[in-house]
Design a protein around this nucleic acid. Sequence first.
RNA 1: GCCCCCGUCGUCUAGGGGACCAGGACGCCACCCUUUCAAGGUGGAGAUCGCGGGUUCGAAUCCCGCCGGGGGCACCA
Length: 531
Amino acid sequence: MSVRTRYAPSPTGEPHLGNIRTAFFDWLLARHYGGQFILRIEDTDQARYVESGVGAQMDALRWLGLQWDEGPDVGGPHEPYVQSERLPLYHSHADRLLEEDKAYRCYCSPERLDQVRKEQQARKEPPRYDRHCRDLSSEERRAQEAAGITPVVRFKTPPAGETQTQDVLRGEVTFRNETLDDFVLLKSDGFPTYHLASIVDDHLMDITHVLRGEEWFRNETLDDFVLLKSDGFPTYHLASIVDDHLMDITHVLRGEEWLSSLPRHVLLYGAFGWEPPVFAHLSTILGPDRAKLSKRHGAHAALEYREQGYLPDAVVNFLALLGWSLDDHTEIIDRATLVKHFDLDRVLPNPAVFNADKLLWMNGVYIRALPPEELADQALPFLERDLGRPLDRALLLRIVPLVQERIKLLSEITAMADFFFTGDNMAYDIETLLGKKYGGQPRLAADALGGVIAAIESVEPWTHDGLEAAVRPLADEIGAKAGDLFGLARVAITGKTTAPPLFETMEVLGRERTLARLRQAAERLEAAGQR
RNA sequence: GCCCCCGUCGUCUAGGGGACCAGGACGCCACCCUUUCAAGGUGGAGAUCGCGGGUUCGAAUCCCGCCGGGGGCACCA
């Protein structure tokens, strides 16, 4: 059977980066093995249902290029892919467990459950269902039914013994043969080594499963959990197991917070007589304070990264490196390479702190690698959004080479290049124009700018090389440092002290607009000099 | 309180008995380049591999204990 993974969000809000990383790993695994990636909506909690939730999940996946092969919108052989539309399925499966005495109906009120829990906590006992309804007589049950109480269905957890489970990230280690040597089987004192002895004994004693580093849970730490709620909806435990089985899911990747529920799920698979899939519980992503990533750590809803000007490829590359690595030195990895090399054997079980600085750096790398036309297409919407009107793409295309290696976010295009699109009536204050060098000497600055104007007025052709050749010697003539003179002109032309290279900027801006801005600056300096 | 997971530079990580007085990346510092800002180049600081025992000729790597961090203990997922 081919590898089938699933991303199964519940539509309770916006997906954040942690969810998306899980989805991405699911996607990667499926693509790596040429299998299927399934999107399944787990909307079994009516109280927390958010209308826009499903759309937000799909938007985020689409933005990052994680296309699913089966799902609510595209369909597939296991329809429907929304759990609220699969209710009869869960009921029939719960009925089956009921008939086989592997589950029972529970009539306890939320108030009683609450009460029991409080008492247990007061006695410093683990809060767990007390199995009150596990062995009700048929008369007692009839009485409850007669009173109109809708029961829940609970799983009959074995009260003792152990349940063994396996998680690939924690429970299994694979070795490459080239790392092994010719190891000893029999020692010189005649005793076997562990390698020999364990293999021989395991075989002779008919050991069928050797699990090292497996998680095991004592059943007495588990309680009789709910399968079907009184509103007729299944709990996650029931719904996810039934669906994963029916949809032939082979690998379940999910957040670490599910690890504690794993024995329940394994027990359930056992009760149904089904083969469980491979489980991998992905570690949590932490904020800078080492607490689970959340809203108060800033923007972590996946789609907010789109608004800020991150590139999907950069985000996906960064996410891949959160708990997985290709080797000991590769950081920039394109999608195809990711798909080619990704596997669970290099996924780490330990939690990772989200390093926003590194994501920003990586986004800069991807921006610089973009073909200029594409960067123009990507950046245009940001510029138009910030300036509030449609802009000339042809002009932007000429600007892109000047800003490409200066921005790390698409949104930074505005601060870097807005002056190309504004009128020539510049809004800077005179102090900024004068800067440190010409502070208090507006006349001197005015003369310097006058020199620049005279030098470039009739330059032919109007290219950055020609402009520089005309202006640079001027600095010497008037006894100024080139940098100081250029700085003055920079503010006059861009309104900023930080901007793209001066002569390239002049070239793109054109003779007329450049001279207009320089003349305006000179006039303002003259006026300041009069006072 | 009980159960489970995790523990290598500030952060992401490589490593899985000798090649490690621990390699790469982000960030930080310095220098170079330079008209500002970036980008780029070179170099540097930064980890007694959480701590303590043990096994071994040899431990970041194997074992035990401890400590620390995280997660779970719902008619939520």
